[in-house]
Nucleic acid binder design. Structure first.
Lengths: 257, 257
DNA sequence: GATTGTTAAAATCTCGAGAAAATATATTGA
DNA sequence: TCAATATATTTTCTCGAGATTTTAACAATC
C-alpha cells in the first residue's frame, strides 16, 4: 500500500503542493466519476452551462433526483459541489437555485478574467520551459484544425471547437507559477462559457478569431509578454462587446418565485 | 407547467445581481446559521483556520459527527461546503482532508492577494462615494483603537484585532465594482489567516503595523491610488517575509496517515 | 527481510423516511 | 374586491442503517 498523504515524504515543497490537488474541485471536467455524487455533479454542471437549467431557476431536489437517477442526499451533495463553481447558489432553508446572470455580471467576469489571465500568461512566458512550449504548440494546432473545419462549414464541430479553445487558453497559462490564479481562471472561464452558450450569440465564430489566436500564439512563442498580453486582453474583451449589443431586456431575470 | 427560464420580469439588471447573492458561500462569516449544516460549517471552518484540525489531517465523518453533534450526512454537507473555501479537499472514494499547506502555497496566496487587492483598491478609490469613505474611516478608527490597546499590553484583544484588521481591509475594497474580485479576495484572506494562526508567528503585532495602516488609510482618503496600492503591496508582502524565515521543515510535518 | 496475497476492520457512499420549514391554497371578514 | 388569517401541500433538512470501497493487519512465499 502506498502513502497517500502529502507530507513526510521526501518531496520538495513545491512538489508537495503541485502533486496534490489542493485546489481541485471534486471532479475536474472530463475525468471518470468515481462516485455517484461526482457523476451527478458533472451532468448537472454540463446542463447548467448549456442552459438546460436556466439562470435563476429553482432546482428542486425532489424533481431532479428522478432525472439524474440518484437519491435525494446524493443530489444535494452534487448541488453543494456546484456552489464551489458559483453555478448554483444555496440559500438557507430555501433550497438551491441556478446562479442568475446579468450584463453587469458578465462584464465583471470578463474584466476579472483579463486581469488574471494576462498575469498568468506573463508568468508562463517568463518561466515556461520546453514542455510548456510543446503543449502550447500542440493545443494551437488542434484549435487551428477545428477552426479550419468550421470555416469550411463542416458542421457538428462547434462543440469540438469550444473544447479546444478552452484547452488552448489553459495551455497558454499552464506554466504559470500560481495555482490560485489558474484556479480562479478556471471558474471564470466556466462562467463565461455559460454566457456564451445561453445567449444565442453563438455567432458562427467569426473568421478573424483565428487570426487573433494566431497572433496570440506567435507573440507567446516569441516570448513577447507585452504584445501577447495586449492581444489576449483584446481577445477576451471582444466577447464583451458582443453581449453588450444584446437586447437590453435579455438578461432581466425570470426564475419562478 | 410554467416557463422555467429566466427572461421577462421587470427588475433592472443591476438589481437582479446585486439583490441576490450569487457569490455568497452558504454562510458569510458571522451570520446566524439557519440550518444545522451551516452551523457545522461555521464551526468547522473556525477550527480549521485556527489549526485545531491540522493541515493534511484526515477528517473522518464518523468521528467528527460526535464532536459537532450532527448526523453523518449533515457533516458531509458541511465538509462539501468547505471545499468551496478550499479549506478542505475531497477525494473520490477516500473522504475528506484538511487542505495542506506549504511555503510555496503561501507565497502564491500572498502574491495573488496583492494582485487582486490592489486592483480592487484602485477601483474603490476611483468610484467610491461618501458611504464608502465613511465606512473606511469607521473601520480604521476601530482598528486603531484595537492596535492601541495591543500596544498598551491589554491582553485578550488579539482576537479582536484580527477581526478588525479583516474588516478594515474589506472596507477598503468594498466600493470595488467587481464582485468576483471581492469574492476571490475573501477566499484568499481566509487562507492567509490560516497561515498566520498556524505558524506561531503570531508575533506580537509589531508597532510599525499601525504606521502602515495609517499611511494606507491616508493615501486612500487622499484618493492617491498609486501611493495607496504601493503601500498595500508592501503591507501584504511583509507577512510573506515572516513566513519565509520560518524553519524550513516547519510545513512538512504532521497529518496522520 | 521485503514483497505479495488473503482476511478483517474501518470508513465512505448511498438511500429512504420522518421532522421542520416554506410555499401555495382556501377561508374569513371588511 | 381586497386584505389578512388559517389550513393544506410541497419542499427542504436531517438522521440512521445497509452496501461498497478503502485501509489495516496478518500470513505466506521468494
Amino acid at each position: 500500500m502506498r502513502k497517500s498523504y502529502p507530507f513526510g515524504s521526501r518531496a520538495t515543497m513545491s512538489e508537495t503542493v503541485l502533486s496534490q490537488a489542493a485546489l481541485n474541485q471534486a471532479t475536474d471536467s472530463h475525468e471518470e466519476p468515481k462516485t455517484l455524487v461526482e457523476g451527478a455533479y458533472q451532468r448537472l454542471r454540463r446542463d447548467i452551462i448549456e442552459g438546460v437549467h436556466a439562470p435563476g431557476e429553482k432546482l428542486r431536489v425532489e424533481h431532479l433526483k428522478e432525472h439524474y437517477d440518484v437519491g435525494a442526499g446524493t443530489l444535494r451533495e452534487a448541488l453543494l459541489l456546484l456552489v464551489t463553481d458559483a453555478l448554483v447558489v444555496a440559500q438557507g432553508q430555501r433550497g438551491f437555485r441556478v446562479a442568475p446572470i446579468s450584463i453587469a455580471d458578465f462584464e465583471d467576469i470578463t474584466r476579472t478574467r483579463v486581469l488574471l489571465e494576462t498575469e498568468a500568461l506573463r508568468q508562463s512566458i517568463a518561466s515556461g520551459g520546453e514542455d510548456w512550449e510543446a503543449a502550447v504548440v500542440a493545443a494551437f494546432h488542434r484549435l487551428s484544425r477545428a477552426e479550419q473545419r468550421l470555416a469550411d462549414h463542416d458542421v457538428g464541430t462547434t462543440e469540438e471547437w469550444e473544447s479546444r479553445n478552452r484547452a488552448f487558453h489553459e495551455a497558454l497559462i499552464s506554466a504559470s507559477s500560481s495555482r490560485w490564479i489558474r484556479h480562479f481562471q478556471h471558474i471564470l472561464y466556466q462562467q463565461s462559457e455559460r454566457y456564451r452558450r445561453i445567449s444565442l450569440f453563438r455567432q458562427p465564430i467569426a473568421r478573424d478569431i483565428h487570426a487573433e489566436h494566431q497572433a496570440l500564439f506567435e507573440a507567446t512563442m516569441a516570448r513577447d509578454a507585452t504584445r501577447a498580453t495586449s492581444i489576449l486582453t483584446e481577445h477576451i474583451l471582444r466577447t464583451l462587446d458582443a453581449v453588450k449589443r444584446m437586447p437590453a431586456d435579455f438578461f432581466t431575470s425570470k426564475s419562478k418565485r
